[in-house]
Design a protein around this nucleic acid. Structure first.
Lengths: 65, 65
DNA sequence: TCATCATGTTAAGTATAGTTTACATCCAAC
DNA sequence: GTTGGATGTAAACTATACTTAACATGATGA
């Protein structure tokens, strides 16, 4: 899996640290870090929660051509 | 989780059975059935594969307001 | 300096996604 | 009235998402 730079950019645009985003989403910092790094394959519910916190949609952050 | 009727409709629009879709996606029939029924929370990679087979995007099939 | 904050990374554990096998129901055609 | 195709469901298993705890690094500022 590739790095998720769109997620990193959206997080930066809200000026959230990995830890702040993790708290709002309800997961650990490591989980956010691993998703940004492309280390794994989150569940769609987690993706939806992240999108809502960041004011984006699934296609914005997780779609790949 | 709620039933995923959008997935069921998109599958019907392609005239695929659960089993045909499952084969093309590379999972079992039960997995497709469970997703349609809303029984669980698939990974985003699986969602993306389903979307590509059905010619849709994540927002089309998995976004919820 | 050194103290703190953000991130990288890893190991061991728990929860759950997804498989396999199997049996049951419904419906259409014949 | 029974056969075959599509779906529902369930139990036991395997793979992996996600947690917890811990230690390491670089940047930044007092």
């Amino acid at each position: 899996m590739a790095k998720n730079l769109k997620l990193r950019a959206a997080r930066a645009a809200k000026d959230f640290t990995q830890e702040e985003l993790a708290e709002r989403v309800g997961v650990t910092r490591q989980t956010i870090g691993a998703i940004e790094k492309g280390n794994y394959n989150p569940t769609v519910q987690l993706c939806i929660t992240i999108c809502k916190v960041l004011g984006c949609t699934l296609d914005d952050l997780f779609w790949e051509e």
